[in-house]
Design a binder for these strands. Structure first.
Length: 842
RNA sequence: GCCGGGGUGGCGAAACUGGCAGACGCACAGGACUUAAAAUCCUGGGUUCCUCACGGAGCGUGCGGGUUCGAUUCCCGCCCCCGGCACCA
């Protein structure tokens, strides 16, 4: 008897895998590929079981697909740039590069100790020039195409520390996280990616993502926020000027009784300049602009506004309506101005009520005949138009297209589609990121760094104070350069890129990670992409996935890839909670995988995390659950150990023709387990029930062995062995082989050891996933429950394969059933799947 | 407010296409083994009631209705929980 020593097995097999390069792959068009990916990690220092769960999920899939015959790409890397490392540098003085690389080394060790089957030779870290070189390359391709452009935009600014703050560094009531000073807004020239150019395509592409969680698709759809409407020009009274508004409800335009401008609307400045009480008006505008920005930080605000004193003409009614400024009108959506229809819009109604502006009802439902009370609140539904000139009596939404067409014909407006999605601001006034590869020349303006001069390397900065502007601006050798166009003196861009740029294409880099000419070769991407299975946290459901879908399309247009969607199937895994809360260092409820590994080994942790709940669901960590998983693995170990040491048999099962009932039944269980586990892992991602099925098989094997396994009472092991026929040994052998292969994705170290001890050569990487024989799953006899008027009154044992008529006849002939239907009329006999028979009498 | 996902034993959960609700595990209880304990192996359990017992009857998947021979599953109306978005005109 050999004891189960998980820690020794972990070491032995992890070493063997690395030595044999067991998980490294090459492009091989003769084999079907499978690309299995988990979202790469920010190297924070330590992986806790919450992170680790995701890697295990991916590893189950990767290991299963390997045994199913696929050429499996399963890589890992590091999302290594970012604010935390820079903040740590400010605090402790450790250079971000050092802390990041140290963290990577530690976390890599953790993942290796878990036995995750990564192709480590393809590892990438985004903070290395090898990688960010191609962030710059892609940036320049986008710049060439007008997809990267500059515009003024606001950032959070701490006046005391004299530095830009990220949104998450603005805390509480809008103060600096470090010094508590109230944060102000500051306008800077910044770089943007024109993701809006792909808005419609990104929206339509969602329809093809049938293997994504519905939730994520919906979140993306809402984020893009497409709405169809019209842009309509309202001329100003007594002026050549006009104001354009965007509306989705042109059908209510006869009820537009005033116009509202966002405080930032350019017309507000023009009005202020001409306003009779100029100073007073300008002060009010300034107050509103400040208030509006504050509101974005703190949440909802009371609707407020003031009249400009100017009037606009409603182009449909021809009547003059007042123009107001309102704090709830968004400057960066639509035209920054709206027509207010208080009769049919909640917000406008609230505003009109507060400031006593006219409310005019122009819609009612077709069956509504009486007077509509305007003060009772707005009616926002579509209906029949009233009091709407030539459109009176017509019905929305049909009338909308008619009105838009008329507006177009009159030259006062046109149909328009608006998106909530904004262009992606990528400039960061930070050190630890990819330098933006642009040079500013007095003569030539913003010039892209020539591709041949890439990468623009991040210079070494030694002091991190967190004060002052972009850290790169301090490095003169970096800033001062020559213009690539004219050779004159020039300055480099000192901002770095948002780290979301790094993560928007790393999955493509994994296809060809050492390419020094291109981000990746076309051939490599064509073979490996798209990612077949992608798993990660739901917190990336919007931005990361949307940006990746955007980059894929840009690279398609650049000619590097020929598909639209990078991720075929997506799984958003649930978090691991401890004491009802998300694990975090500050809460002190982190479960460190290394402690678990020391106590139980990697396999127990892997199995437990997969068994405890379905992958998408949150789980509460439980030490006793872990103990239970360890017990199960011990049970498997003892079973196979007992086989190897006392029963034994052929390396491959050889069957005769006659089976005892017990043998038939065990084979049925074996094949049924294969069927269930295969579909649970590959198709349904029900990893918890896959483990359950394996447990059932093990229970059945223990029952079959009738106490011959160690520790059990009764029969003497040697005597029992003598009784085993060759046939029984073959049946057991088949079950044990299948069990070891199927358990191997969950508990690879133990499985490898058992596989070897069972006499198989070449390791599990060379093993083939078992196939089930559908014939064996069919029962020879079926137990048929018989319901009479909804209650099960009898259970009949019938031969399998009876047709419905035969079964009906046998059921009605049975004495037990007869007793229940005697003297009554049989109205209906339903033979259902199951099988089950339902007899209705009355 | 809008959108999405949920609500099943003491607990985590299962039930795939409308067909024996609670598989599998945790915790618990009992038995075997042991001088004893641990470990191991075996057994038990939704709940109420009837029966000495074997066994049987009723009620049970958030609540109220509906469709159906049959509903955790489908339909209508509610309640509660979790997550996302939130003045997008």
């Amino acid at each position: 008897m050999t004891d189960y020593a998980p820690q020794a097995l972990d070491k032995k097999w992890q070493h063997r895998w690395t030595h044999d390069r067991a998980f490294e792959v090459t492009l091989d068009p003769s084999r079907p590929k499978y690309y299995c990916l988990e979202m790469f990690a920010y190297p924070s220092g330590h992986a806790h079981v919450g992170h680790v769960r995701n890697y295990i999920i991916g590893d189950i899939m990767a290991r299963t697909k390997r045994m199913r015959g696929y050429n499996v790409l399963h890589p890992f890397g590091w999302d290594a740039f970012g604010l935390p490392a820079e903040n740590a540098a400010i605090k402790t003085g450790t250079h971000p590069e050092k802390s990041t690389l140290d963290n990577i080394a530690h976390m890599k060790g953790q993942l290796q100790r878990l036995g995750i089957s990564y192709a480590w030779e393809r590892e990438v870290a985004t903070c290395l020039p090898d990688y960010y070189h191609f962030n710059q390359w892609i940036f320049l391709k986008m710049f060439e195409r007008g997809l990267a452009y500059r515009k003024r935009s606001t950032v959070n600014w701490c006046p005391k520390d004299h530095t830009v703050l990220a949104n998450e560094q603005v805390v509480g009531d809008g103060v600096c996280w470090r010094c508590g000073t109230t944060v102000v807004q500051r306008d800077l020239e910044q770089w943007f990616f024109k993701i809006t150019a792909y808005a419609d395509e990104l929206l339509q592409g969602l329809e093809t993502l049938t293997d994504w969680p519905e939730k994520v698709v919906v979140m993306q759809r809402n984020w893009i926020g497409r709405s169809e409407g019209a842009r309509i020009r309202f001329p100003l009274a007594a002026s050549e000027d006009s104001v354009e508004i965007f509306t989705t409800r042109i059908d209510t335009i006869y009820g537009a009784t005033f116009v509202l401008l966002a405080p930032e609307h350019p017309m507000v400045d023009r009005i202020a300049a001409e306003h009779p009480r100029h100073a007073e008006f300008a002060a009010q505008v300034a107050a509103f602009r400040a208030l509006d920005r504050q509101a974005r930080l703190t949440g909802e605000i009371e609707k407020e506004g003031f009249a400009t004193g100017r009037m606009a003409v409603n182009p449909f009614t021809g009547k003059e309506v007042p123009i107001w400024v309102a704090n709830f009108v968004l400057a960066d959506y639509g035209t920054g101005a709206i027509m207010a229809v208080p009769g049919h819009d909640e917000r406008d109604h609230e505003f009109a009520t507060k400031y006593h502006l006219p409310i005019h009802v122009v819609v009612r439902t077709p069956d509504e005949t009486g007077h509509v009370d305007a003060t009772a609140g707005p009616r926002t539904a579509y209906g029949q138009l009233v009091d709407s000139g030539e459109y009176t009596g017509q019905v929305a939404p049909a009338v909308i297209s008619r009105m838009i067409a008329d507006a177009d014909a009159r030259g006062i407006g046109k149909g328009e589609v608006q998106y909530r999605l904004k262009d992606w601001g990528v400039s960061r006034q930070r050190y630890w990121g990819t330098p933006i590869p642009v040079i500013y020349c007095e003569k030539d303006g913003a010039v892209g760094v020539p591709l041949a001069d890439l990468p623009v390397k991040l210079p070494v900065v030694t002091s991190f104070t967190g004060r002052g502007d972009s850290p790169l601006a301090q490095v003169d050798e970096f800033v001062n350069c020559v213009c690539p166009k004219c050779g004159g003196p020039a300055r480099r861009e000192t901002d770095t890129m948002d780290t979301f740029v790094d993560s928007s294409w790393y999955f493509l880099r994994f296809c060809d990670p050492r390419n020094s000419e291109l981000p990746f070769s076309k051939e490599a991407a064509a073979y490996w992409m798209p990612v077949d299975f992608y798993s990660g946290g739901v917190e990336h459901a919007i931005l990361h996935l949307l940006y990746s879908r955007f980059f894929t399309r840009v690279l398609r247009d650049v000619g590097l890839v020929s598909f639209d969607e990078p991720f075929k199937r997506l799984l958003t895994q649930g978090m691991v909670l401890k004491d009802g809360a998300v694990m975090s260092k500050s809460k002190g409820n982190v479960v460190d995988p290394d402690t678990m590994l020391e106590k139980y080994g990697a396999d127990t942790l892997r199995l437990y995390v997969m068994f405890v709940a379905p992958p998408e669901k949150e789980v509460e960590w439980s030490d006793s659950g872990l103990e239970g998983s360890f017990r199960f693995l011990l049970r498997v170990w003892r079973l196979v150990d007992h086989w190897v040491e006392t029963i034994g048999g052929e390396a491959a099962p050889v069957f005769g023709t006659e089976f005892t009932e017990a043998e038939r039944s065990l084979r049925r269980k074996t094949h049924d387990t294969i069927r269930r586990v295969t579909s649970d892992v590959e198709e349904r991602m029900h990893l918890n029930t896959a483990v359950s099925s394996l447990m059932e098989l093990v229970n059945e094997l223990y029952a079959f062995s009738q106490g011959t396994v160690k520790g059990a009472p009764a029969r003497d092991a040697a005597a029992a062995t003598a009784e085993e026929s060759a046939q029984t040994r073959a049946v057991l052998r088949e079950a044990i082989d299948a069990l070891v292969v199927m358990i191997s994705p969950f508990a690879p170290h133990m499985a490898e050891e058992l596989w070897e001890r069972l006499g198989h050569r070449g390791g599990l990487e060379a093993a083939t996933w078992p196939l089930f024989d559908p014939e064996l799953i069919k029962l020879d006899e079926v137990v048929v429950p018989v319901q009479v008027n909804g209650k099960v009154r009898a259970r009949l044992t019938l031969p399998a394969g009876l047709n419905d008529d035969e079964m009906r006849e046998r059921v009605l002939a049975d004495a037990l059933v007869k007793a229940h239907i005697e003297g009554k009329t049989v109205r209906k006999v339903v033979i259902a799947k199951g099988p089950l028979v339902s007899v209705v009498v009355g």
